[in-house]
Amino acid sequence: MTLDELETLIAGHGARRERWPDEARRRADALIAASPAAARLVAEARALDGLLDSYQVAAPSPDLRARLLSAAMPPVAEVMKFPAKTHSPIAFSSFWPQAAALMAASFVGLWLGINIVSVPLFNEQDLSGYVLGNDGDVIASLEEGQP
C-alpha cells in the first residue's frame, strides 16, 4: 500500500482501523509500521475525526413526524380521477348530459348576472318631466293633466 492509497482508505472509512476492510487493514498496518509519514497521516486523521465528531446537530422537532404523516394523503391525481369508466358507453351517456346541464346553468347564471347589473334601476330621461321630492319620489308633473 502507498501513502496515497492509505489516504484514500482513511478518507473513505475514517481513521479508526476497525472500520477499515480486513484486507486493506492488513496492508495499511504494514505500511504504518514501516513508514513514519504513514503513521503521521493516521495520527492527523484521528485528530481530524475527533474534531468532526464535535459537530453534533439538533434532533428534528417532535411535531415533524406528525406533519409528515398528516401530509401523506393520496396524490391529487388519485382523488380527482375522472369518472372511473369513461371508456364505457354507459358512463359517457350518464356523464355528458350532466356536464352539459351544468355548463348551461353556468351560462344562464353568468348572462343574468351581467344583464341585471348593467340594467339601470330607472331611466333618468323618463323623469325629466316630473318634480322629485328629497327622497326621490315623484311629487308633481310639469306637464298638464299629470298628477
Binding site: T8, I10, A11, A45, A47, L48, L51
Partner: peptide, 13 residues
C-alpha cells in the same frame, strides 16, 4: 473525500 479531508485538516488541525 480526499480533497475534502485535506481542506478540513488544513483549516481545523
Amino acid at each position: 473525500l480526499v480533497r475534502a479531508r485535506r481542506s478540513l485538516a488544513e483549516t481545523l488541525l
